[in-house]
Computed example of a mutant assay.
Amino acid sequence: MTALALDEVVARYGDLEVLGPLSLELVRGQTVALVGKSGAGKSTLLSLMHQRWRTHGVALMPQDLGLVPNLSVYHNVYMGGLARYSRWHNLVTLARPYRRDVEQVRPLLKTLEIEHKCWSAAGELSGGQRQRVAAARAIFQAGDILLADEPASALDGPMAETVLATLTQAYDTAVLAMHDVELALRFSDRVVGIANGGIALDQPTHRVQASDLLALY
């Protein structure tokens, strides 16, 4: 079943066409890995998807993470669920978080091994810790579809696998832009290769090996 689709989309910076025209169909229940070298257009494609699909319950984990440095880890994660609560509830929790809300966030932080930083300011964290906070926020958002741009790039092997496993368990429909080919193959059902502003490869993961993707880099 088609979840969402792009049809002959184009991205331009000024008069320069940097992506497309390309079409892409996202199937419900499928995790898609976008692979390709830096500058190929993966982030641009994710941005287009978010612009077109943001009203369809799409959660975004951007490459710059989008955290608020002066707010605590808890508050940054809670921000993913702002739309579920009233404005008054959100204002109160900024000053004095409700216990039930904290109890919803803590298990996510524990799974991602960052619970001990719950009340630390996001700006005090390492790059890998911030990436885990952004992952927790995306999960707490509880959307229908996840778009994630390099969700594990700042993490070591075991923690990268933990984050990717947690994200893909939370969202059965996702698009993940990734540089690490091995991780992309392990955590996706389908691989879409981007090169020269277009789709150079689109195959089920079980038909693709890491060596098949070398031409994209």
Rank of each mutant, 00 (worst) to 15 (best):
L164M: 06
A138V: 00
V18C: 10
I139R: 14
N70T: 15
V192Q: 08
A215F: 11
L48I: 11
D202E: 03
H179A: 01
W119C: 04
G123Y: 06
D156F: 06
R12D: 11
A184E: 00
P21S: 10
A135F: 07
S72E: 05
F187E: 00
Q51G: 14
G29L: 02
A148N: 12
D180L: 04
D172P: 05
L146D: 06
A134Y: 08
A5R: 14
Q169G: 13
Q63S: 04
G80H: 01
M159W: 02
Q131D: 03
L155A: 08
D7M: 14
E182C: 14
L112H: 06
H50K: 12
V18T: 05
H116A: 12
M1T: 15
R132T: 10
A40S: 08
R84G: 10
A160Q: 01
H116L: 14
M49V: 00
L46I: 07
T111W: 05
Q131Y: 02
T55A: 15
D64H: 11
A210E: 12
L214R: 15
A59G: 06
I114M: 05
G39K: 10
V68T: 09
L22Q: 08
Q51L: 15
C118P: 12
F140D: 01
S120K: 12
V102I: 03
D64A: 11
L46K: 04
V175N: 05
R54C: 08
G143S: 08
P21N: 09
A170H: 03
G193S: 07
D101H: 12
Y74D: 01
S153L: 06
V32W: 06
L46C: 03
L147R: 01
A195R: 13
A95C: 12
L6R: 04
E115W: 09
R84D: 07
A136P: 03
S47V: 07
T55V: 15
T31K: 12
L91W: 13
L60D: 00
T31A: 06
V192E: 02
L109Q: 00
G127R: 03
P21Q: 08
A215M: 11
G36K: 00
E17Q: 15
R207L: 15
L16Q: 15
L67Q: 05
E113I: 12
I199P: 02
L19T: 07
A138Q: 01
E113T: 14
E25S: 10
L167D: 08
L34Q: 05
R54T: 09
Y78A: 09
M1C: 14
Q129C: 05
D15A: 14
L22N: 07
G198M: 07
V18H: 05
E103F: 01
V175I: 05
L71W: 08
P107I: 02
Q129M: 07
A184S: 08
P107G: 00
A195H: 13
M1W: 12
L125Q: 00
S120T: 11
L67P: 04
M61R: 09
D15I: 15
S120L: 10
T168N: 03
V163T: 10
Y98H: 15
